[in-house]
Design a binder for these strands. Sequence first.
DNA 1: CAAAAAATACCTGTTAGCAGGTATTTTTGA
DNA 2: TCAAAAATACCTGCTAACAGGTATTTTTTG
Lengths: 209, 209
Amino acid sequence: MKTKVIIVDDHALFNDGLTLILKEESDYFEVEKQVFDSRQAAYHCLSINPDLVLVDFNMPHLNGLDVVKQLKTLSDKYKIVVISMYAESREIKQFKEAGVDGYLTKTMPALELTSSLKKIMQGEKIFENEMNKKEVFDKDNFFKKYQLTKREIEILKVLKKGHTTEQVAKTLNLSFYTVETHRKNINQKLQFKTKSEFYEFLNNVDLDD
Amino acid sequence: MKTKVIIVDDHALFNDGLTLILKEESDYFEVEKQVFDSRQAAYHCLSINPDLVLVDFNMPHLNGLDVVKQLKTLSDKYKIVVISMYAESREIKQFKEAGVDGYLTKTMPALELTSSLKKIMQGEKIFENEMNKKEVFDKDNFFKKYQLTKREIEILKVLKKGHTTEQVAKTLNLSFYTVETHRKNINQKLQFKTKSEFYEFLNNVDLDD
DNA sequence: CAAAAAATACCTGTTAGCAGGTATTTTTGA
DNA sequence: TCAAAAATACCTGCTAACAGGTATTTTTTG
């Protein structure tokens, strides 16, 4: 009996990545459905009746916490595990209260993830609370996946200081237009939907080598 | 008995700013000396014998870590707190090993800084990183000082979800202009200089009751 | 009750950001 | 070496944000 899994993550790339990781252990996990719109999570859980639901923490429309609460009203049968970019105690507490079975971070290695999930399926509860703070975004994985170039990272570093596009251009001796182009490309790669999202990323990402 | 403070920071503006911040709490802190050349830190500490030394992280000639090591060979009596541009785990570890009492970032609001320093003077050790940021934030103090109104906090809550002024207006059944006015007032009260600052605040502040 | 504080709303002009292009040069790697 | 990737630069048009006002109504509170 394989573990039937539903992945709820609006971020297609990560959703796919997670699916591939679980496929590596296809004798144990079976990804039944990848949900990209959190509002459809409940519907798919009802129709598929999975053993395990992996929910991303920050999503548009319905965030992870809302999804968890919704799923909890539907059934107690499936395990729910939150996968987050942040290991932040306040959020973890909220999810604990909402009754999830685990809170894992996107920074953990694939092997650790699958082994943690197996433990959770056996009834254990795992709340990743590593005080590894600044590595909120897993640098290696992150930059590899999204393929930010050197110049783009350089521009992000200057933006991180609170500078505007024009100030960045002056700092790096570039044309205003060039910096705008780079910003455009960064936004396309990282798919920010709001300015808030962009600045949240900027404030949390570790760009140092 | 006030806390005698020496500030070691080559950056005159920030050195002054820090002094002003501590002057706001002049019944607790007394800035005895502003040192702008890190090579003179030891000399002044010996002659003044302060209770607290605030050391900038990156300075010419002698960097923060070197200053700390030097001071530590002189005396164990005064508390040493490093003030840095960014919270970087590797550096924090080094300073911890050097025996500092705290590592705070320049990005933290003034009130958080003074409240942290007070705690340190009482023997607590505080190492600021992205993880404990949200919790260190002294909510009550903050809102008391800046006197944000109920409506303003309500608007911040909606903005926190990444909504625009227009979306906030719709959500709260207000005119677009009203929300803009509130935002204007918030910005005036909190004195954000850049958008990045505003969003950093928004992403880190705890608005829940 | 009267004054202060808070909340509401409107107006103008400016700037930053961003989406959607085009296009050339430089660098790099198979 | 040559094609792809990266970096550079420009243009238009639109929208959100923001600074600097004014002004009325509602709520709070001494």
